[in-house]
Amino acid sequence: MSERSVRIASAVLASLGVAITTYLLYVRETGGSLVCSTGGCETVQNSSYAEVLGLPVAALGLTGFLVLLAAALARGDWARLTNAAVAVSAFIFGAYLLVVQIVVIDAICQWCVATDVLTTALAALALVRLGQASSGRWMP
């Protein structure tokens, strides 16, 4: 998989993440109801775990996906390193939130699971991209 392909795939996935988190944030701020086939989205969104440092988790997610999108579009070592660091931390934080949903809140939010899938794929792609650059297969 070429560096270019990895970056394009990352940009597509990050854009999906931006769309999902924007939707979650919009519903939260307007007080609407989430489209939810798992039945637990509102419970998760209204739980005390839906905020970190006073900010909605959806806002943190949106920020993270925007950074990942920018890092996917940019070239250079800083873009690769930032991409990998943010993607891996998002993957870890997403895994933590998934455990919280299952163990503490006892409700599953399909949108959170969707972003977990995205961050998992983005983290994998970011590490692939990091390895490609280090092994000299990518030419800026």
Binding site: S48, L81, V86, V88, I92, F93
Partner: peptide, 24 residues
């Protein structure tokens, strides 16, 4: 590079998880 990235990622994730637990 891998060590720097994983270290930074772990630190960032630890801050987020810690803040989440305290907030909850």
């Amino acid at each position: 590079q891998l060590a720097v990235v994983l270290g930074a990622a772990a630190a960032l994730a630890a801050v987020l998880v810690g803040a989440s637990l305290i907030g909850a």
